[in-house]
C-alpha cells in the first residue's frame, strides 16, 4: 500500500474562475511510505494544484488519487485523509488561527474531536518536535517567519499525520528561517518516519530529498534521485529551473573538456572532485 497514489489525474479550474486551461494533464505518480519527495517546477506548472489533490482539498476531474487506498472522492474518508496527509502552506501569517501558539496547535485535534487530555499531550509533543515548546504561551503574530512556520508544522503534527505536504514553506522566509524549517522537516522524516512531500523553488532544498519530481505544464516531466535529475543540467535549463551551484560549476567545466563526475550535488562533493582533478594534473609530473 502506497502513501499516496496518483493515477492519470486530470484537472482544470471552473470556467467562471477565468482560466479553463488544463492544469493537470494525466499525472501519474506515487509517494511511498517514509519517503521524502521534492516537487519542482516554475510557477503555474500545476504543482500546488497537485498538492491540493493529496488531501482531498481538490478532487480530480479524471483519474483517481488514493491515500493509503482511500479514494479522495469518497466523502466518508475526507477527514481521515486530511488527518493522514497534513498540509503546510506558503504564507506563515495566513494559516495560524489562534492568537496563542498552543491554542493554534490544538486546533486540528480539536476539530477531530480528540479527548482534551490527549490533545494536551499531543500539543506538547508536537511543539517539542519542532523546537517551539518554550514559546507555547506566546502570541503567534510576534514570532519570526521561521518560528511561525514551525508552529504551523506543529499544528499538522498534532493531528498525528503519516505524511506532511509542504507547499513552498520557505518562500517567504529569510535564510535563517529557511534553515530552521528545513532542519525540522528533515528531522521529522528521519526520526519519526513521516513521509514528506516538499514543493520548493530552492534547489539546495530539493537536494535533500530521496526523490525529485519535476513538473511542467501539468505533467511530470522528470523523475529520479536528485543526482539523476540534476545531472541533466541542459534539460533543467530548458524548463527554466535553477540547478544547484556546485552542479552547475561542474557542468560548465565538463563542457570545457574537464573530466568530472556527473551529478555532483553538494559543496563538499564538488570541492573534492575538483581537488582530485587538480591533483591528477599536478601528480602527472
Amino acid at each position: 500500500m502506497e502513501m499516496i497514489e496518483v493515477r492519470d489525474v486530470q484537472f482544470r479550474y471552473d470556467e467562471e474562475e477565468g482560466s479553463s486551461a488544463v492544469v493537470l494533464d494525466g499525472i501519474h505518480m506515487t509517494v511511498r511510505k517514509g519517503e521524502f519527495v521534492a516537487l519542482l517546477g516554475h510557477n503555474g506548472c500545476g504543482k500546488s494544484t497537485l498538492a491540493k489533490h493529496f488531501n482531498a482539498m481538490l478532487l480530480p476531474l479524471g483519474g483517481a488519487v488514493l491515500v493509503k487506498d482511500m479514494n479522495t472522492t469518497d466523502e466518508r474518508h475526507k477527514y481521515d485523509i486530511r488527518s493522514t496527509v497534513g498540509m503546510v502552506l506558503q504564507n506563515p501569517d495566513n494559516q495560524l488561527v489562534s492568537t496563542i501558539v498552543e491554542e493554534d496547535v490544538a486546533f486540528g485535534p480539536e476539530n477531530l474531536g480528540v479527548e482534551p487530555a490527549v490533545i494536551r499531550t499531543r500539543v506538547d509533543e508536537a511543539l517539542k518536535a519542532v523546537g517551539m515548546y518554550d514559546y507555547r504561551d506566546h502570541a503567534a503574530h510576534k514570532l519570526s517567519g521561521g518560528q511561525k512556520q514551525r508552529v504551523a508544522i506543529a499544528g499538522v503534527l498534532a493531528m498525528q499525520p503519516e505524511c506532511i505536504v509542504l507547499d513552498e514553506p520557505t518562500a517567504m522566509l529569510d535564510p535563517r528561517g529557511r534553515r530552521e524549517v528545513m532542519d525540522t522537516v528533515c528531522r521529522l522524516n528521519r526520526e519519526q518516519g513521516i513521509t514528506i512531500v516538499l514543493i520548493t523553488h530552492y534547489m539546495e532544498e530539493a537536494v535533500l530529498a530521496d526523490r525529485v519530481l519535476v513538473m511542467d505544464d501539468g505533467k511530470v516531466v522528470r523523475e529520479g534521485t536528485p543526482r539523476q535529475v540534476f545531472s541533466q543540467v541542459e534539460q533543467l535549463r530548458a524548463l527554466e529551473l535553477d540547478v544547484p551551484q556546485p552542479t552547475e560549476l561542474c557542468h560548465v567545466l565538463q563542457q570545457e573538456g574537464i573530466t568530472l563526475p556527473d551529478g555532483v550535488l553538494t559543496i563538499e562533493e564538488c570541492a573534492e572532485a575538483l581537488l582530485q582533478q587538480l591533483e591528477g594534473y599536478h601528480g602527472g609530473h
Binding site: 552547475e248 570545457e256 573538456g257 574537464i258 575538483l274 582533478q277 587538480l278 602527472g284
Partner: peptide, 16 residues
C-alpha cells in the same frame, strides 16, 4: 559560477 569557471580553467587545463 562564471568567475569560478574562469579561475579554475587555467589551473585545470594548464596544470600540467
Amino acid at each position: 559560477v562564471e568567475q569560478a569557471r574562469q579561475a579554475l580553467l587555467p589551473l585545470l587545463k594548464g596544470g600540467a
